[in-house]
């Protein structure tokens, strides 16, 4: 017998006489009473709570804010589909991991954001770039539009394509493994800089 047949058979034997599966009640879905403005405010406050840098600007100011966020010196990489011009940045043309390791900063767009948890989500399309891009460089500048920000986790799920890779980012990389003292910055970007763009 194959392992597959054995395991499925053992599962069925274990469940002989078991009760039917329960009905799943989703009473946790409380409609949010917060206004759009309050949702954006909460998002900004909660991103900042994670020791990330967060700022808010109008659409016409984005390029300037990005330019200010990236370092004066050192290489910057951007995904091919980024809507904003980033001076001196190289476009990702399939850089190797080692090449990315020599890059200091990356600027990407976001797919969505969650106010309740201060989370940004990347689905790694043209404007967010592949996963390695926003991982290996030490500074991640992420631009998110206000209309991409949702109140809570349930609201964002239907916005996502489960078949695409997704990265949920809540602040910079962190560890509390030594005496539970939080240290920001281990393997992922040590600095997360979020620019929230008005629409």
């Amino acid at each position: 017998m194959s392992a597959r047949a054995d395991i499925i058979g053992d599962v069925r034997r274990a469940l002989a006489g078991a009760p039917p599966a329960p009905v799943i009640e989703r009473n946790y879905l409380a409609p949010s009473t917060a206004s759009t403005g309050e949702v954006i405010e909460r998002f900004i406050e909660r991103v900042a709570d994670y020791q990330a840098v967060v700022e808010r600007c109008d659409a016409n100011e984005v390029a300037k804010r990005i330019a200010r966020a990236i370092p004066q010196e050192g290489a910057v990489v951007v995904p091919a589909g980024l809507s904003w011009q980033v001076p001196g940045a190289v476009e990702d043309t399939g850089l190797s991991a080692r090449e990315l390791d020599a890059v200091h900063a990356v600027v990407t767009a976001a797919t969505a954001g969650i106010a309740e948890t201060g989370t940004i989500l990347l689905q790694h399309g043209e404007a967010e770039g592949r996963r390695a891009l926003s991982l290996v460089p030490d500074l991640h500048v992420c631009v998110i539009r206000e209309d991409q920000i949702f109140a809570g986790v349930p609201e964002v799920m239907s916005q996502l394509d489960p078949r695409r890779p997704t990265t949920w980012i809540s602040g910079p990389s962190a560890t509390s493994d030594i005496e539970l003292i939080r240290v920001e910055g281990v393997h992922g970007p040590r600095t997360l800089h979020v620019i929230v763009v008005g629409t």
């Binding site: 890779p165 997704t166 949920w168 980012i169 809540s170």
Partner: peptide, 13 residues
């Protein structure tokens, strides 16, 4: 409220 990173993936991209 949320851990720093959550990754989801489906097979090969």
């Amino acid at each position: 409220r949320m851990n720093p990173y959550t990754s989801t993936w489906s097979g090969v991209t």
